[in-house]
Design a protein around this nucleic acid. Sequence first.
DNA 1: TGAAAGCTTACGGCAAGCTTTCAGGTGGAG
DNA 2: CTCCACCTGAAAGCTTGCCGTAAGCTTTCA
Lengths: 226, 226
Amino acid sequence: MRVLVIEDNSDLGDSIVRNLRSIGLTVDLFGRADEGAEAWRLAEYSAIVLDLMLPDGSGLEVLKAARAEGLSTPVLILTALDGVSDRIAGLDTGADDYLTKPFHGDELAARGRALMRRSKLPIVREIQAGSLLIDVEARAARVGNGEIALSRSEFLALECLARNQNRVCSKESIANAIYGFDEEWSEGAIELHIHRLRRKLSQCPGAPGIKALRGLGYMLRPTGAA
Amino acid sequence: MRVLVIEDNSDLGDSIVRNLRSIGLTVDLFGRADEGAEAWRLAEYSAIVLDLMLPDGSGLEVLKAARAEGLSTPVLILTALDGVSDRIAGLDTGADDYLTKPFHGDELAARGRALMRRSKLPIVREIQAGSLLIDVEARAARVGNGEIALSRSEFLALECLARNQNRVCSKESIANAIYGFDEEWSEGAIELHIHRLRRKLSQCPGAPGIKALRGLGYMLRPTGAA
DNA sequence: TGAAAGCTTACGGCAAGCTTTCAGGTGGAG
DNA sequence: CTCCACCTGAAAGCTTGCCGTAAGCTTTCA
């Protein structure tokens, strides 16, 4: 799941990013309103965190414009402690929730979760793929009783595959699940992650396998055998 | 457990903070009514200590507004010795108890404890994590019959982990359990607390372990082995 | 059969986490 | 007031595990 953060204060921005990442989200951070506007045209986000006080104009206007364009992603706005009017204006303009600065990291994570829960997107806490069960919240993958220890990248790749059962996941879409917007990545790295994932899955009897589709990508195969 | 203190006299405020902290609470201190009002919207407090004489208007009004918004946290108000009418008005407005200045630190602590005991909030007094039992009120951790001696920070960290079984606790959320709003903290310090906690837990056969999830945080593991 | 795509292994860099040490601070006991 | 025990966290060095490049091998397809 992918979240866009638009915040010019880099300390606060980093903290937000770390926090959201800690609950398993992939995060893109931008410091300016126009960059953010461009980003949400390019990628599909599950939620957006928007600071209203930005160096290049009010975040409000950008939000307004985006809603007019048909953006339906849930938006959480950040305002200064005393920006009551901003806050109200924000909610009028199409924000779904707000948070005043300063705030606790926990609070942000909780609001984020609530936001996504309320959104139309079906938030799946557990994904079942044959005998494989992925617990997104606990970041754990199980086959029967056995838990499979996965690294961050491996988990995200598997989650992407499991969310798209019987559909092909291109390397690019897997990369999008693992890496942020501006991070570089190579096909070799994806192949390597798939390789390590396969090795771990194969040690678990009954676990599904990953099939490669030449030129297209990968697919999760319901049963371990063929 | 976390407490909000709204008190403009900084000497008195500090004294209250020290006092409450000494009985194991995490405390946020604010000097103005509006700051306090924002704070209790943002974080979940177990109790609130509110001075009625504040520079920016009466604490009473703020309390009234908050109750109207649905705040159900127990509130303890502080009044001057001769502010009888204030006191009565306070209780009418939705305070749960009062204390006249000057007062003894002990008295404050005792009232605070009583307040939380009486609270309607579903405060969990005991948390079970496998063979580990945490008595929040008595600030004690037990495995079987053996009690584990923990420092304040260690206890709070463990409490945070135990409240979130099968979920990842980021270092930030653990820090939020230990430190107040404006206190600085370092990741190293959290790691250190976890380290000491682990050492104590490991000496107790059957106690759960703490698993590190690289880049995400920590998780309490139901059984010591596995 | 040759090229492209995918697979596998090896290796090194790097960041996260762990552990130890040390010093300052606080609180309680004498 | 002094002493002592304990709690706390900064600092430093060590360990671990993740990640990704690189290189060579295998498979697939034209």
